[in-house]
Each structure stands twice: as structure tokens, then as C-alpha cells.
Design a protein around this nucleic acid. Structure first.
Lengths: 217, 217
DNA sequence: CTCAAATTGTAACATAGTTTACATTCTTTT
DNA sequence: AAAAGAATGTAAACTATGTTACAATTTGAG
């Protein structure tokens, strides 16, 4: 029970390293992406899905007035965009590179052939999608039932799970991922710091008392 | 583009009839469930998933203080509980029968054998899970960016998609599905009625002007 | 080194939606 | 037919968060 339910988002932690998608990307050229570069856009048709050879990518929803809700942060060795690819409907989310990335784009012909030649990959894909369903359900659960401070606490713990005790991100980012405003993030983090649970830097947060954060819910 | 994006919840409309899971349940005994009977419980281990031969089932999340958030209404011919089954983690949601149901419980041994004998079923499962990912993403999108009245309008349209112009459910139910309180549902529906968009009965809502409801967002 | 841009802190104010409470209406049971 | 239970309508008080605004700090670019 090291990290228990903390697959809130970003959280593919529970399965990190247990996927082997290199086979899927085998033989495909890697493309370079710069930070901030768009990979796919909400509403577009899904002709490919993507394998991350290196770098980090966020997927997110955008409201009509431009607000952004982050769904997942994908990392090296993971795939993204496979759901819209398989169900044939337009993309529900967008994805952009958070860092420099090297990405392979997998098209339908390549995917079909590789799955046919490696039947065990189908089962991996089923498990991967099942994990994504779990993560999104947890997302709904959290936003439905937790207060702002609780969601922010969960998020910090989930990010620390991946990055270590010092999490590097802005309050703006945390707001987008937890579904609260930047101002609320700053206020809540200020309180956390006052209680000695965290230490705030510029663009970074060091978790001092993770146990205390867990006790918030 | 008859129903466009309205897979909000309950909404498997976009794919209705396009699944053929009978093969998966073939040879398994059907069990009878009464309305209100529990099928599986949040937090429990997933040893089976389920095929609905007849009846309707809701899946939902429960908060610590007992509040309920409905995720999906499943119907005849659909399967449920497959995500936790495949990813091997405890159930994130519960499921109970809404009506009398006949259900087949599919265990791991039976599932493995059937998928091995019918390789095309794996691809169906991938498409089904992909559709579920889409639905949950839409769920997150709606609760993140829409007001109470907009979510209720969407929900009514989605339900009408399945049940016809007269939707049979309580305000309590709508609240659970849209993520708002019963009181808010009653207030919003009252306004909709005053505008002539709907007609309210006892346990039923007739949509008079669906177009007007769509214009709300 | 300087200036512009990004990030953070904080306060006042606005508000959508919850909670609580109670009356009313409809349905089912006896 | 009466009584009990469900479902609905509506109002008042409350609250968590968003919004707006602006100052202070840190970083990065030229």
C-alpha cells in the first residue's frame, strides 16, 4: 500500500514501468517536439496515437472561454491518444508537450499489423485502457466529493510520487489539474506552509510532512 | 449527426446495438436481481464482470457522508465492471439494479477462454473501453465547465435520446447524475417549465422544446 | 545591468449552489 | 377511505470558491 489510491492524475504511478510499448512504435520515425507544441487538438479526427520516447506531455480539456482542465501528464514510455483512435470519434481532449519530446506517431495500418503479429499486445491495451478508466473515475470522484484543499493535497502527493519530495510546477498548473483557480491554490498552499506541511519556492514546492497532507481526507 | 456529443452519461447511445457480448456470456447461467439489489461494491476486489441480459443498472460513486454520484446507466446487451476486472485494482464505483435484471457473471477463466477462442472480441473490448474513456472525459468536461442548468439540460437530452420525449426519473436521480443537489434540480426544472421547454409530471418530465434546451450551451 | 515577463501573495467583493426547513401534492398501502 | 410514504415546490441563510485587482518578488532576455 505504498501509494494506495493516488492515481488522481499524472498518476500512472501504479503501473509505471509495467508497460512495454516500444514494440508498437518499432520501425516508426521519431519526431521532435518543443515545449508548448500541440500534438493533437480537441475536436479533431484521430488518425494516429502516440508513443513517447522521451519527454512529458499533458492532455487537457478547454472550455469555451479558454479555461484549461488538465487530465493527465504522460511520460516516457507511455502512449496517449489511443482512446479516440480506437473509438473513432473526435478527440475530447487536446495534448501539448510540456518539455522537449521525441514521439512516434502510430497510424492505423501500423497498429493493425503490429497487433496482429503480437496478440499479447491487445491484452496490454485492454489493461491500459482499463487503467485510464480507473483514473478518470477517480477524477470524477475527487471533483465531486473533495474540497479544494483536499484535491490540492492529493495532487501534491501524486506528483511527489513521480517527482520526489520537491515538486516543480506553478500554482497555475496545479489549479488547472485540481480544477480550482490560481488564487485558491496560492491561498491553500499558503496555509499548508503556515502549518509546516510544505515549503514554497518559486516554481517549486517541497513536501515536508506528506503524512499530514494525507490526513486531510 | 443526430445526437452529436450527448454521451454525457447513460449515454451509450452513440454505440447502441453495435456491441455483441452474448458470445462472452454464452453458456453462463443467468442470475435474477431485484431493483435496488447490489451487484458490486466500491472498494471490493473484481473477480467478475457482468453481462446484462435484461434490465437496467446504475454505476455510481459514494462519498464518505453517503452522497451518490451516478456515472452510467447500463442497459440490456451491455457489459459493466470490466475496467476493474481487467486492471486488477479494487472497484472505484458501485453498481446496483435499477429494475428487475437478468445478469451473467463472467469470471476470469471463462473470459480468458472466450477471448482466446474469439480474437475479434479483444478488439471489441478495446473499442468499448475506449468509448468509456470518452464518456468519462466528457463527464469531467461537463462538471468542470458547465453551470447547473446546462448540465441538467444535457442530461435530459441524453436521457430522452434513450427513452423518448418523456423521461421517467426523479429530481433526486437527476441531481445524482448531474452532480447537483435535489433542490437545485427542482428550481432549474421549474424555470425550464416556466419557459415552456418542458412539462413536469410526478416522476416524469416531458421535453417540449429540445432545441431550446440545446441552445443553453 | 536593466527591463520585461512570469510567478506569487493577499484582500475585497461577488455568486452559484448547498443546506435546512417546511408545506404541498401525488401515490401506494392497508 | 385513511394513512403513510415519496416526490416536489420554494424560501432563507450560509459557504466555499471564483473574480478582480494590485503589489511584491523572482527569473530570464537583451
Amino acid at each position: 500500500m505504498e501509494h494506495q489510491e493516488f492515481q488522481f492524475f499524472g498518476g500512472r504511478a501504479s503501473e509505471r514501468g509495467s508497460w512495454d510499448w516500444e514494440l508498437l512504435a518499432n520501425g516508426l520515425p521519431l519526431q521532435d517536439y518543443r515545449p508548448g507544441q500541440l500534438i493533437y487538438l480537441q475536436g479533431s479526427q484521430a488518425t494516429h496515437f502516440y508513443y513517447i520516447s522521451s519527454g512529458r506531455i499533458k492532455s487537457y480539456l478547454t472550455s469555451q472561454d479558454g479555461a484549461e482542465r488538465i487530465l493527465t501528464v504522460y511520460r516516457q514510455g507511455e502512449i496517449l491518444g489511443e482512446a479516440s483512435f480506437f473509438d473513432g470519434q473526435p478527440r475530447v481532449s487536446s495534448a501539448t508537450a510540456l518539455t522537449k519530446c521525441r514521439i512516434a506517431a502510430i497510424d492505423r495500418e501500423h497498429c493493425d499489423r503490429t497487433l496482429r503479429q503480437n496478440p499479447q499486445l491487445s491484452m496490454s491495451m485492454i489493461r491500459y485502457l482499463a487503467m485510464t478508466v480507473r483514473q478518470l473515475s477517480t477524477h470524477v470522484d475527487d471533483t465531486a466529493f473533495l474540497r479544494a484543499d483536499q484535491r490540492i493535497a492529493r495532487l501534491l502527493l501524486a506528483l511527489a510520487e513521480e517527482d520526489g519530495v520537491t515538486v516543480h510546477c506553478t500554482h497555475e498548473f496545479l489549479g488547472g489539474a485540481a480544477g480550482v483557480s490560481r488564487v485558491t491554490v496560492s491561498r491553500v498552499l499558503g496555509q499548508f506552509q503556515k502549518c509546516g506541511m510544505i515549503h514554497l519556492g518559486y516554481g517549486s514546492i517541497r513536501l515536508l510532512e506528506p503524512k499530514a497532507l494525507e490526513r486531510l481526507f
